[in-house]
Design a binder for these strands. Structure first.
Ligand SMILES: [Mn+2]
Ligand SMILES: [Mn+2]
Ligand SMILES: [Zn+2]
Ligand SMILES: [Zn+2]
Lengths: 124, 124
DNA sequence: ATCTTTAATGCAATTTTGTCGCATTTGTTA
DNA sequence: TAACAAATGCGACAAAATTGCATTAAAGAT
């Protein structure tokens, strides 16, 4: 199951790099100037998540958004930061701020999905 | 638009009180021993959220879960705590731990949706 | 107790998001 | 250039949630 390079992969990655924010499948599809099937884009996105190239954010609209992962983390999960959703411009972005938490005894945390909602710097 | 008391409202609230955890619409419907329409349950849940009786949690499966709100908060948002989803028993619960965060300058936060995933105390 | 008002409900249709099976295409390597 | 398997397109499907509209029923007024 070695990965192959395809035009779709490159296009999806290019869109996300250019945008510099998290995007949903349909937003990505709109930005790609090629006719790529919806299911294919989802499969590309899921593979990128498996490979740690992207990470997935589930916003409070229930939709999945995808953002580039910081590669500087050698091989650890890089979802341990807050995400921010702007009520004005609908942008979803990764914040640099890390999520710090404590949990009751005997709980163990594997991963997290933390989204703050409000007004972003560009809209305030 | 004053609220009326109905059997459905009472049944939904009773299920959530008894469960003591967050539940989705379909889980609530299964626990109610009455034949209540899906759309009606959603409307009841949404009204309860508007009224501050419940609060809504969106898990990383994209589904909405509903939990009782602490009334001790007079009229402020009561979603400022972490939620926990157990990978073993699928329970979603409110943790007592508050979400503490800092955001970059010029950002303002209106509400939050923070879900930690892992193994709960009962399953560890 | 009955009437009136309108919130709440049932039902069907619809929308949105995401996945899956399967045949076909295409990237990679020998 | 041939062979293998990963990737794609397409359609079908599932699940979650909402909406329009006709009907029902809760609550206050008479
Ligand atoms: Mn992120
Ligand atoms: Mn909660
Ligand atoms: Zn904004
Ligand atoms: Zn558990």
């Amino acid at each position: 199951m070695k990965r192959r390079n395809t035009p779709t992969k490159e296009a999806v990655l290019e869109v996300l790099k250019t945008a510099g924010k998290a995007m949903s499948q349909d937003a990505i599809e709109q930005e790609i100037h090629m006719d790529i099937n919806r299911a294919t884009i989802y499969r590309v996105l899921n593979r990128f998540c498996e490979d740690g190239v992207l990470h997935r954010i589930v916003a409070d609209d229930g939709k999945q958004y995808f953002a580039l992962s910081d590669k500087n983390d050698n091989n650890k999960v890089s979802d341990n930061h807050f995400h921010f959703k702007c009520l004005a411009c609908d942008t979803i972005e990764c914040l640099p701020n890390k999520v710090s938490f404590t949990v009751p005894n005997a709980y163990s945390v594997a991963h997290m999905n933390c989204v703050l909602t409000g007004i972003c710097k560009d809209c305030s």
